[in-house]
């Protein structure tokens, strides 16, 4: 018996939410460190800032489409903001605050590169142009903090159901009462965000990047390594817990979902990118296509990982 209440719309939202948050975090880190001003990092910072708001916005739209009566009587959506004991209410608040700030961050990046936009801003809000770098830096920090919230709260949301779905409430380590899902979702969000903004966009924009950016390779290896360990810990912990958790883990590792897991998540999203980036550190460079390939692989794996977690969320045995 698999989990049947939540389907593809929720899964895609979880993916887009994490992706958008991670993309913005990548850009914000580059902004705060000043590395954004280096030519090779410009496209990454620009992409992360600009694309994040729309991606998370699109994901949120999918969430609304997944509602029942909230779709046909949309004014009910206001009620979603009221129960602070519910992680879903936290999420609504975080998203509502994040999306406008992220869009504003994107605007502050676009001002620098798009004269058309700069022109509009100059006509309507000339004060904004006085110190764009300062405003952008502050907006990056604010949206960065909110982005952590966006990336993490979905993990908290599914782990909050506790005994109802044992797979989702597994701890990070047996003796540590910290749930695994928030941490896994955060790492995955940053990983997919970097894959999009750097591996895909920046590489296509500046192909020579792949010849130089060793620190990005290092960051990828660390993230992939940590994510690998976390997924392994999750499955081991679930197997050990017995009952529905073990059933979930078996379903993922050697049941009907196993091909999706071993090929779609492990091979394409963990092993292949890891090899690409490790080789790059050793050899000093890697090809354009392997960079793009690893980026695409990480994104695909991010989506499938969330699919597996949601669908294999088997309810507790009674």
């Amino acid at each position: 018996m698999t989990q049947t209440a939540w389907g593809w719309l929720v899964i895609i939202y979880l993916f887009l939410g994490g992706l958008g948050a991670g993309a913005l975090l990548t850009a914000a880190l580059l902004e705060v460190s000043g590395w954004r001003y280096k030519r090779d990092y410009c496209p990454t910072a620009l992409t992360g800032a600009v694309i994040s708001g729309p991606i998370v916005g699109l994901g949120s739209l999918l969430l609304i489409l997944d509602l029942g009566a909230g779709k046909t009587e949309p004014w009910r959506i206001v009620y979603l903001f009221t129960n602070f004991g519910s992680v879903m209410t936290w999420g609504i608040w975080i998203l509502t605050l994040f999306i406008p700030v992220a869009l504003f961050y994107g605007l502050l990046e676009l001002i620098e590169v798009e004269p058309f936009i700069k022109g509009i801003v100059w006509a309507r809000f000339p004060r904004l142009l006085r110190n764009v770098p300062l405003y952008r830096r502050r907006t990056a920090i604010a949206s960065g903090i909110l982005a952590v919230g966006v990336a993490v709260y979905t993990g908290v949301l599914i782990s909050a159901v506790g005994p109802a779905v044992p797979l989702w409430s597994q701890p990070v380590l047996p003796f540590l009462p910290i749930p695994m899902m928030p941490l896994l979702f955060l790492i995955s969000a940053i990983s997919t965000g970097m894959a999009l903004t750097f591996d895909l966009v920046a590489t296509i924009a500046i192909p020579e990047i792949q010849q130089q950016m060793r620190i990005m390779d290092l960051a990828h290896i660390v993230l992939i390594g940590v994510e690998n360990v976390l997924i392994g810990l999750l499955l081991l912990s679930a197997l050990n817990a017995g009952g529905a958790a073990a059933e979930s883990a078996r379903m993922i590792m050697y049941g009907p979902l196993s091909i999706l897991f071993w090929v779609g998540v492990v091979l394409v999203g963990l092993i292949y990118p890891f090899v690409v980036h490790a080789y790059a550190i050793g050899a000093g460079r890697h090809s354009l296509w392997s960079g793009i390939g690893s980026g695409a692989g990480i994104l695909i794996a991010g989506l499938f990982l969330r699919y597996l977690i949601v669908f294999a969320g088997i309810p507790a045995q009674l």
């Binding site: 509602l67 909230g70 109802a164 969320g313």
Partner: peptide, 9 residues
């Protein structure tokens, strides 16, 4: 609103 969080929880 039909979010189904209760059904899962």
């Amino acid at each position: 609103v039909g979010c189904k969080y209760c059904e899962v929880a």
